[in-house]
């Protein structure tokens, strides 16, 4: 059972803005309207966040179907608990906090993972697909070779897959969502200092993986 509820907003870090500041977040306002029973406001939130959520989940889980299923589950969780919502964080921080917990559970559930086989070209949650590994190994032997866009994309995906789950989540939130260290910390239940270390190690790993192809 997932343990995320809307009242489980991430811990407030010392330098986090005051509670009232979140009320200026337009998406928090939409959520507060949804809390009062305005379903149109909730539909607007789904429209606003569906692509962003699915994109992050796609890289976390490794395939589109799983990303959409889990994305739907995230919205379902939010909707079910809308009446208990409190504006303790930015809406995006809260939503990705739920998504992160659901994704962690999904990854732990090996049976479910087997039920959702990856597409041939997809990277998997357990690492790069053989095709990507093969390309990385082959290209490493030919450093002067110029990679085309597809090959570069596959290498970058393989590099991302080489990160552990927490590093990957931090990278995706920072790269895709432009989240600050404080927001990433709130999303992942970490301290900002831990996020700083996490991202530092992640970027070192990415550089080490990709350096041969620079």
């Amino acid at each position: 059972m997932f343990d995320v509820t809307p009242t489980e907003s991430p811990d407030v870090v010392t330098s986090e803005p005051a509670l009232s500041q979140y009320l200026h977040d337009p998406d928090v306002q939409l959520m507060l309207r949804a809390k009062r029973g305005d379903d149109a406001a909730f539909s607007q939130l789904v429209e606003n966040y569906q692509d962003r959520l699915v994109a992050v989940l796609y890289h976390l889980l490794g395939n589109q179907d799983a990303a959409e299923d889990l994305g739907q589950e995230v919205f379902l969780r939010i909707y079910r608990n809308r009446t208990k919502y409190e504006a303790k964080a930015k809406f995006s921080t809260w939503m990705f906090h739920i998504a992160n917990n659901l994704a962690s559970n999904w990854r732990r559930d090996g049976a479910r993972r087997r039920e959702a086989p990856l597409a041939g070209s997809d990277s998997g949650p357990l690492g790069a697909r053989p095709q990507e590994q093969l390309l990385a190994e082959k290209s490493a032997l030919m450093p002067a070779r110029v990679l085309d866009r597809n090959e570069s994309q596959m290498l970058v995906r393989a590099a991302l897959e080489s990160l552990n789950d927490r590093q990957k989540m931090a990278v995706l939130l920072h790269k895709f969502e432009q989240m600050s260290y404080i927001d990433i910390a709130a999303t992942m239940d970490l301290t900002p200092q831990a996020v700083k270390s996490l991202l530092s190690r992640a970027r070192e790993n990415l550089r080490a993986y990709l350096e041969p192809f620079f």
Binding site: Y58, H59, A67, R149, V156, R207
Partner: peptide
């Protein structure tokens, strides 16, 4: 470090 980070822009961002 910066170059490796910028390469992440090549990652696909599939829409729903």
């Amino acid at each position: 470090l910066n170059r490796a980070w910028e390469l992440l822009d090549l990652l696909p961002r599939p829409n729903a």
